[in-house]
Structures are given as C-alpha cells and as structure tokens.
Write a protein that binds this DNA or RNA. Structure first.
Lengths: 194, 194
DNA sequence: CTCTGGCTATAACAGCCGTCATAGTCTAAC
DNA sequence: GTTAGACTATGACGGCTGTTATAGCCAGAG
C-alpha cells in the first residue's frame, strides 16, 4: 500500500456529506467532491467502484452514525438533554455555515431517481431516520412514556428538526428552529413521567 | 395571438412545481419542464426571460398560494380542522405519487446557490413558509392561544409536515406523517382554549 | 388586404456531467 | 532487488446543461 491513509477514503465521504448537505445530491458532481477532499478523481472510483450512488450512500450513513453517536451519548442524561443536544447539533451546523448547510440525509431523501426502484442512498436515508427515532423513542419509554406515545413523539422530533433546518436556511434565520425547540421541550416534559 | 392560451404559462409553472417536488431544482432541466408541459423550449424563455431562477420562483409561489388558499378556507372551521386539511393535502400528494413527490418549497430551500446572495427562489420559499405559519398562527390566536405560543406551534406544524413528508418518501411509508399528525392534533387541542 | 407582434421552431454555444480505460507511480513484502 | 498491488494521473466518450440567436409562423387589428 502506498500510504497508511485510510484517511483519504473517509475524507472523501465526509466532504461528500458536507457538499450534499449544501447543494443537494444531483447538483454535487463527483469531480467537485474529489477536489473538495483534495483527492484525485481516479481515487473516487477506486474507493467507490459503484460510483456516485455508493458515495452518496456512504455519505448518508456517515452522517447518520455521527449524529447517532452524539445522540446516544447525550440521551444517557435523559430525553430532555438528548433533545437539547440534538437541537444544538443542527443549530451549530446551520449557523456556522451561515445558513448554507443542512442535513444530507434529507437532501438525499427528496431527490427521486429516474428508475422505478428505490436507490440504495434513499434506503440508507430511511434507515438513518429510523435509527434516530429509535434512540429517542427508547429513551422516552425508559422515562415512562407509552410505546405508541414514544414512537409518535420521536418521529415528531426528527421531522420537526429536519423541517426547521430547511426553513432556517430559506429564511436565513435561526428563529424557526428555536421556536419549534420550545414546543418540543414542553411536549417532552409533559410526556415523560419523572 | 395564436391561441387564447394564457393557460400555457400556467401549465409550465404547475409542471415545473411538480417536477421540482420530485427531483429537486438542480436535477430538473428547463428542457424537461417544457416537454412535461408540452410546450416548446423557446416558449419557456419567452414567458420567463430571466430563465430557470424565475421559473423556480414562480413555481414556489404557485405552490405556496395553492396551499395557502386551501389552508385559509379550512381554517374557518378552526385550527384543528385546518391542521387536518393541511395534513390531508400533503398526505394525498405523497400517497398519490407513490412516495415520489414532496414539497417543491422545501426542495428549493435546501439547494444552495454558488453565489453569495440569496437567490429569488429561496426568498420566495421563505415567504411561503412565513405565510403558512401566519395563517396557522392567526387561527390559533383567534381560539385563545397566546402570541408566542401560537407562533411556536405554527412553526412546529409547518416544520413537522415538511419533515415528515421527506421521511415518508425515504421510507416509502406514510407512517411518519400519521404518527406526527397524532401528536400535533393533541398539542393543538391542549393549546386552544375552546 | 397588409401588417404587427405574440408565439414557435431550430440550431448553435461553451461547458460540465458520470463513467471508463489506460498507463504510470511508488510502497511494502518477499 | 525484484515484484505485486494499492493508488494516481490523464484523457477520452457521449450526452445533457442553461442560455441565446435567428428565422418562421399565424391570428387578429387596421
């Protein structure tokens, strides 16, 4: 092996996730992803032989796991702390990028493929959403929420965050996220029983 | 004039909104929009001399007003009825398209332009979100909700719907929307005072 | 009838797209 | 010191992109 650089591969994935979160999947070219990661175009097809779809899939999973790790850790202190961390995480992304970046998982979800089948990247996006919901839902149940109640609330939290992030980008303001946050916090407090 | 067709222009706008809601803005070419509306490419630049940005802007506004009209009408029966109609509207779009269509306003919101300035289509998207929120918020206040409370809840509803629609598309399931709907309904009932 | 002007048809432009193929480089193991 | 194989460099392919220009049509106004 040339370099001990499995770092190159990961750099490409992380860069792809960032670019997709800003411009969407279809508007992000492989050439730009490569350049953004300071990797040659050839390397892209070396690491990801299945091309753009594979790269997108891995970018989605990369983001999904990164968020899930953070969420898992913060949820140890309870659902309210978990929610706060979840909100803070996205708030930072939106604000630090000057309202230019969002969630790559959402971006991939809303770009229909020409084909009739569900592309792997969209399947990965669905899995990521489900995992985030599961983490929140489990924590809510541990704190006294009913099964159905917990599932509904978890879905609402994920959906509301994804939605507000997009609204914040359109409005060039963090207000939507902060407003929804208030309601979500109150709702969780009213749902858990301790 | 050749035809008494001011219909052509509107057909292009409506078609553009539909295509953008499925594939995103950047992945939808002007040629495809024209073909989808059975209009010649030349007509596109005749009706929309400022090109793709103008077409996207009008598509966003078209969708925004269409939804706002429906919302305004149903809100006459109160916030709960308004919410139900809002949810039903998006539910129909998602289900009827077999999870392939979503919201063009969201799609436009999350595709950053290369330039430093906010493109007109994104500004239009922000305005649309604000209008939907205003309608909901006003109705909530008419039914006893406080100013801040109403604004927060209105933002949460819009964000949650936009988010769930995307989640439904990724998962190829209507469940996320229906789950969030339950929570939103309960939340509104608990907030209004009559 | 002529003529005007909204609309269409067609072609061209420069440039980027995803993908592939090839030849080359350079390190680590033998 | 040789060799294998992971990585890079380069260039090409057909096709699609947004946009513009130009010439043509064809209904209604005068």
């Amino acid at each position: 092996m040339t370099k001990p650089s499995p770092a190159a591969r990961e750099r490409i994935v992380a860069g792809a996730a960032d670019m997709i979160s800003r411009r969407g999947l279809n508007a992000t070219s492989i050439r730009e992803m490569a350049k953004h990661a300071r990797a040659p175009l050839g390397s892209t097809y070396h690491y990801f032989p299945e091309g753009k779809q594979q790269l997108a899939t891995e970018a989605v999973r990369h983001t999904g796991e990164w968020v899930a790790r953070r969420l898992r850790k913060e949820l140890e202190a309870g659902p309210v702390a978990g929610l706060r961390a979840f909100l803070a995480l996205w708030r930072k992304i939106v604000v630090d990028s000057d309202f230019r970046a969002g969630c790559p998982v959402l971006a991939v979800s809303i770009e229909e493929p020409p084909t009739g089948e569900t592309p792997p990247a969209v399947v990965a996006a669905a899995d990521v959403f489900t995992e985030w919901e599961s983490l929140l839902s489990a924590s809510l149940r541990e704190h006294g929420a009913g099964r159905e109640e917990a599932a509904q609330l978890a879905t609402l939290v994920v959906a509301a965050v994804e939605g507000t992030v997009a609204m914040c980008r359109a409005k060039r303001s963090i207000e939507p996220l902060d407003r929804a946050a208030e309601q979500l916090r109150a709702l969780i407090l009213a749902t858990i029983k301790d």
